[in-house]
């Protein structure tokens, strides 16, 4: 489903160049559950951003379902993010002014989904993460685990084929982390490809495949 070939990502910092990714090769099958591990600064977040079409590789080829997407125009990449990719972030990134329901509706709002359908689908997504009774709470009225589950509902409400989670449990206590991982894995069992970036070995250990990164390159488990 995903195929990275010779990916480089180079930042210019002052006068020097920093290689966040160096000649990365990676293949991910549809429905896979993959964990990316590595110390901070090893390039795992950059990898996730490139996979999620939020960032462009400096060099190399990125095939998404056989289509080269590294060099697509902005609008087509937006379309891809909208329909094929769901993001879950470490810091949840919920809009505090909206209710849980409103946050889950957000991607559909920009996709032009009619209001009634938005309501219905958001309610269903919240039910799937076990928060049907919290639909009208604002983020500051929810616990960390609940917020992350709202974020997961938002990530899956457009029914993407790829779910990307960047340290999804990094800000949560043990039991909340467990809840969140169970919800993510539930989505994965439903057929969505799940890639989790983490440096928590317990979280990584739940994945079927683990790749380790160091200094912008894979040291174990890739391809």
């Amino acid at each position: 489903m995903l195929e990275l070939t010779g990916i480089w990502r180079t930042y210019v910092v002052g006068d020097s160049e920093v290689n966040a990714l160096r000649d990365v090769f990676l293949e991910v099958e549809r429905g896979e559950h993959l964990a990316v591990m590595g110390p901070s600064g090893s390039g795992k977040s950059t990898l996730l951003h490139i996979l999620g079409c939020l960032d462009r590789p400096t060099a190399g080829r990125y095939l998404f379902d056989g289509r080269e997407v590294g060099a697509l125009p902005d609008d087509e990449r937006s379309h891809l993010r909208q329909h094929e990719i769901g993001f879950v972030f470490q810091f949840f990134h919920l809009l505090s002014r909206l209710t849980a329901q409103g946050n889950v509706e957000l991607p559909m709002l920009f996709a032009g989904v009619p209001r009634d359908e938005r309501r219905r689908r958001a309610a269903r997504a919240l039910e799937a993460v076990g928060l049907a009774d919290r639909a009208h709470h604002r983020p500051d009225q929810l616990s960390g685990g609940q917020r992350q589950r709202v974020a997961i509902a938002r990530a899956v409400v457009m029914e993407p084929s790829l779910l990307l989670a960047d340290e999804p449990t990094g800000n949560l206590d043990r039991s909340s982390a467990l809840e969140v991982m169970e919800v993510l894995e539930e989505m994965n069992r439903g057929g969505q490809t799940l890639i989790v970036v983490t440096h928590d070995p317990d979280v990584a250990g739940r994945a079927r495949r683990v790749v380790r990164m160091s200094d912008g390159a894979f040291v174990e488990g890739a391809v």
Binding site: L54, D74, D75, L80, R81, F87, H93, L95, P107, F110
Partner: peptide, 16 residues
């Protein structure tokens, strides 16, 4: 900024 980044990550186009 975070909200704008989020909207983009969720697939909002520049125009939107």
């Amino acid at each position: 900024r975070a909200e704008i980044g989020l909207l983009k990550a969720l697939g909002a186009r520049n125009r939107q």
